[in-house]
Design a protein around this nucleic acid. Structure first.
Lengths: 198, 198
DNA sequence: ATCCTATATATGACTAATCATATAGTAGCA
DNA sequence: TGCTACTATATGATTAGTCATATATAGGAT
C-alpha cells in the first residue's frame, strides 16, 4: 500500500516547524541555541514562534530522518555546540514542501466565542472585553513595527529580503485588520439593544 | 500554595472547548451527539471546530469537575443517550470565563513561511502557491455565507441573535481580508525582481 | 562569597487536538 | 441477503506545542 519512501517524509503530515528549521539551516548552519536566540526569538517570532524544547526535539527528528547532519564543536570555556547543516535530502524535502499547498490553519479565537455567548453580559462588560483585546492587539502590532526597523536598516534589497518584507507587511496588515475589526465591533456593541439584560 | 479552589477550575489554563460547551448547554440541554451534529458541525464550525472524541472527553471532564450533570435516557430502538445539563457551578464558571481576557491565540500560517523562504523558487511557482491558497480561502468564505443564510431566516433579532450575527460578520470580514491580502501579495510577487533565480 | 546571567543541551510531564477504530442496534435500500 | 447510513458513546494512539526543570561552566556584579 502507498509508495515506499523510507528515508524521507513525503506523504506524511505537515511538520511545519521541521520545515521552518530546514529553511533557516539552508541559509546558514546553526546550533539549536542559535536557532532559538537568533531566529525564533527574533525575526521568526511573528511568523512561527517556537519553544526551545520543541526545537531540540525537532532537530533530533530531522537528524534521524537524514534531513540534517550534526557535528560537535568542542568548547572548553563553554558547553559544546552541536552544529547542524542541511543535507541534500533535506534540501529536496524543503523544496518539495515549499511548493506544496497546505491546509488552511484553523484559527480558534476565544474572544469571538465570548462575544457569541455574551448575551447575558451588559453592554459595558462586552465593550470592556473588546477594549482589552484591542490593547493586546495594539501591543502585538507594535512588536511587528520593531521587526520592521531591523529589516529596513539593511539597504540592499535582495530577492530574499524583498520576500521577508512582503511577509512582514502581510502580518502587519493582518494585525491592522484585527484592530479595525475590534473598533468596529465596539461601535456595534454600543448600538446593541440592551433589553433582556441581567 | 495559591488559593485553594477544589471544585472549580478558576486559575487554571484556558480550556476553551469546555467553555464553548458550557455556553451551548446553558442555552439547552444536550447529548454529546447533539453537540457534535447540531452545534459543532453546524453553526459553531467557523468559530470553534471540535472533534467528536474531544467533545466526549471534555464532557467527562466537565462532569467530574461538577460543571455539568448527566442523566441517562434509556432508549430501546437506539443506543441510550447521556443528556448533559449545566449546573450552578458551571454557570458561575462560564460567567467568569466570559468576562476574562484571554491571551491572543497564536496563528501559524504555513503559507507565510513558504513565502518567507520562497527566494529559491521562480515567481510563477510562488504565484501558483498563492493562487491555491486564494482558492481555499474563497471556499472557506463561501462556507461562511452559507451559515449566514440560516441565521437570517430567523427574523426575530434577539440580543443573542444580534451577537451571533456580529460574530459571523467579524469572521466573514476576517476571511475577506485574507482574500484581499492574497491578491495584493500576488501583485507584489509579479513585481518581484527575478534575479538570482534557479 | 554569593548571586545572576549567558551559553548550551536534554528530558519529563502535560494540554489540546486529530485520527482511527470499536461497539451495537435500527432502518432503508438494492 | 448484504450494504450502507443513522444514532450514540468510548477508547487508543499520535502529533504539536508548552512549561518546568536538570546539568554544567564561565564571567561579571553585589
Amino acid at each position: 500500500m502507498g509508495r515506499a519512501c523510507p528515508p524521507c517524509s513525503f506523504g506524511k503530515p505537515p511538520m511545519s516547524l521541521a520545515h521552518v528549521i530546514l529553511g533557516l539551516l539552508q541559509h546558514q548552519e546553526r546550533t539549536g541555541y542559535d536557532l532559538k536566540t537568533e531566529c525564533f526569538d527574533d525575526g521568526m517570532s511573528h511568523l512561527w514562534p517556537a519553544d526551545q524544547a520543541q526545537i531540540y526535539r525537532t532537530l533530533d527528528k530531522l537528524e534521524s530522518q537524514g534531513s540534517i547532519t550534526c557535528t560537535v564543536e568542542i568548547q572548553h570555556d563553554r558547553p559544546n555546540r552541536k552544529v547542524y547543516r542541511i543535507t541534500q535530502a533535506g534540501e529536496a524535502e524543503l523544496t518539495h514542501w515549499l511548493q506544496t499547498h497546505h491546509p488552511l490553519p484553523v484559527l480558534r479565537e476565544p474572544l469571538l466565542v465570548q462575544l457569541y455567548f455574551a448575551a447575558q453580559l451588559p453592554n459595558e462588560a462586552i465593550v470592556y472585553l473588546l477594549e482589552q483585546e484591542l490593547e493586546a492587539r495594539q501591543e502585538k502590532l507594535a512588536q511587528c513595527e520593531t521587526i520592521e526597523a531591523l529589516s529596513l536598516s539593511h539597504p540592499t534589497a535582495s530577492r530574499e529580503q524583498e520576500l521577508h518584507q512582503l511577509v512582514l507587511d502581510l502580518v502587519k496588515q493582518r494585525e491592522q485588520t484585527y484592530l479595525d475589526c475590534l473598533e468596529q465591533a465596539i461601535r456595534a456593541v454600543h448600538r446593541l439593544s440592551d433589553r433582556n439584560n441581567p
